[in-house]
Design a protein around this nucleic acid. Structure first.
Lengths: 106, 106
DNA sequence: GTGTAATACATCGTAACACGAGGTATCGTT
DNA sequence: AACGATACCTCGTGTTACGATGTATTACAC
């Protein structure tokens, strides 16, 4: 899938992945894989970005000797998803423009 | 509208704008305006990119003392639009993932 | 006749961002 | 002991949208 097309949706995707219940990096990638693939470097960049934007908060958890950082969505994060739904309506109208057929005979 | 979200669709939008009939820069911006806004610098960058990718060809036309560059879509350009439709299906499934409600009571 | 807006093109620098390459460390299985 | 899976992170690079800026002509108002 085209990288550019993914750009606008990746952030929201990650938020959606932690919406139901808190999750951590490695698991987020696995959960999202059937829908959209992203590399670890990309994910951690996004998580950092979302944290700075107060859309999620981080909690460190010791798990089997390894560190796990659990991410929890905030109200702003939930709002971001809602805003995205509105933006998507615009995207749909643009899609209509792109795929419109000007004449009946086509 | 979020810049990132526009990224994947701008190229295809420009192709769609010249699909029906050849057009030139200034007119493309005006035609697209109701659907999606983009600056001149962005458009000319995109047109150059699409030309290099053989998705359109350019024709210089003298018009009222001013130069006009008419852009004509190629077979590859049309194919790009068709490919986009397929990519859009993927985008729709991602959208479903983002907006899914996990429980009935919400 | 002089300013101003519209038309029409173009370039340059910047900031955002996705990703590959690479790094560190632990645990379980072979 | 070796290796894959788990789990985190950083750095450099290429793509890209945009604002700022520049050039030049036409048309119209004052």
């Amino acid at each position: 899938m085209d990288i550019q097309l993914k750009r606008g949706i990746l952030d929201v995707c990650v938020l959606a992945a932690i919406k139901k219940e808190d999750s951590y990096g490695y698991k987020i990638i696995k959960d999202m894989k059937p829908y959209i693939e992203l590399s670890e470097s990309t994910l951690y960049t996004i998580l950092k970005r979302l944290e700075v934007a107060n859309m999620l908060i981080v909690r460190n958890v010791e798990h089997g000797g390894r560190l796990r950082k659990y991410y929890h969505i905030t109200g702003e994060g939930l709002k971001r998803i809602e805003d995205f739904k509105e933006e998507w309506k615009e995207m749909m109208s643009i899609y209509q423009y792109v795929t419109r057929e000007d004449d009946a005979n086509e």
